[in-house]
């Protein structure tokens, strides 16, 4: 293992994805003396450095911070990782990965990197509304948004809906009430299922009306959203007039690239890992965070699994005496 500053193209531990999981793993890997590179998308429609936690306004369940905004927490985690000379964070997208003589080669648009071990911490992308919801593509960014934190301020004094029943959807609903005059929370299941503390907040908030057992079938409007159609009557109508629709119906794992190495995925396309070591079915290849098959997905669990991966990568490199040439 090299103690040199983390520059150049050869690494001990290469992390794909610069979300909370990847950055925390890098911090830990550096403590174990691993030269570490974190590659993360940083432009276009992908998530910025810090990942998906940057899309939430408040985090109240990350130890050490009673209450902190997602972007601020991500900055702290990035700063912590970068406080180690052995860590380097670059805004590149991994396009291709192969294994040659026990070493992994990761291709980005500009550079080829060599590494002894790899961590997939590529997270997820928002699940879009299915095509069965009429006009869902037509109204994207025309009143239909997948990022409440980005677009909520545009709906001051307006009526909006959030589609979804998870904790993320509930947090988005609560954020929206800071701007909108009315927020419908529309969920296909029988009961929304946020963390109990957020459920209580939803129940107490007079601006929020929860509509369970109901699917969105169509978005209505001319140039911009004017309303939605539902598959069940609500207050004797299948139509709701509103100005904006926010979507939080879950996420799809960004695991495709791992398939190039023969990494096994489950039916949901999540990377299958050993829940004790974060290792995949391929030696020297790890995965952690939202992209994996672990059922409970939070920043704190991703961070823990990322650090676990760093530890087992260190063990692997030491035991197998892997060399990058």
């Amino acid at each position: 293992m090299s103690k040199k500053k983390s520059t150049g193209k050869n690494y001990d531990f290469l992390v794909l994805g610069a979300g909370g999981t990847g950055l925390a793993a890098a911090m830990y890997a550096a403590r174990l003396g691993l030269r570490t590179l974190v590659l993360g998308h940083s432009h276009g429609t992908e998530l910025p450095i810090g990942g998906i936690i940057t899309t939430t306004h408040i985090v109240e369940n990350y130890p050490g911070f009673t209450k902190i905004s997602g972007p601020e927490l991500a900055r702290e985690i990035e700063k912590h990782a970068l406080s180690y000379d052995l860590v380097s964070v670059k805004g590149g997208k991994a396009l291709q990965i192969k294994k040659k003589k026990g070493i992994f080669i990761v291709k980005t648009e500009k550079t080829d990197y060599k590494t002894k071990t790899i961590l997939f911490a590529t997270g997820t992308r928002w699940r879009k509304l299915p095509d069965s919801v009429k006009n869902s593509s037509k109204f994207e960014n025309m009143g239909l948004s997948y990022c409440a934190l980005c677009d909520a301020p545009l709906y001051k004094g307006k009526t909006v809906a959030i589609i979804g029943g998870s904790d993320s959807a509930a947090k988005d609903a609560l954020l929206l009430t800071e701007y909108a005059k009315k927020v419908y929370m529309i969920y296909r299941g029988s009961e929304i299922h946020p963390e109990p503390i957020n459920l209580q907040r939803i129940e107490k908030n007079k601006k929020i009306e929860v509509i369970n057992n109901t699917n969105l079938t169509k978005i209505n409007g001319d140039e911009f959203v004017k309303g939605i159609s539902l598959d069940r009557k609500y207050k004797s109508s299948n139509e709701l007039n509103l100005d904006g629709v926010f979507v939080a119906i879950g996420h799809e794992p960004l695991s495709q690239i791992s398939a190039q190495l023969g990494v096994k995925l489950n039916g949901k396309k999540e990377i299958k890992i050993n829940h004790m070591t974060s290792e995949t079915n391929i030696h020297g290849v790890y995965a952690a965070g939202d992209v994996t098959d672990k059922p409970f997905k939070q920043l704190i669990t991703g961070v823990a699994d990322g650090c676990t991966a760093a530890y087992y990568a260190y063990e692997y490199i030491t035991k197998e005496k892997v060399m990058v040439t």
């Binding site: 940083s42 432009h43 910025p48 810090g50 940057t54 899309t55 306004h57 972007p71 990022c147 934190l149 980005c150 677009d151 909520a152 301020p153 545009l154 001051k156 701007y179």
Partner: peptide, 29 residues
Amino acid sequence: STETCIWCAKAREFLTSHKVKFTELDVGS
């Protein structure tokens, strides 16, 4: 931009780091 948007912050950062002068308009307010 809006005050909360993460990509707006990235855009601001990019322009500042390349010493490009710009005016920012908060469409939320």
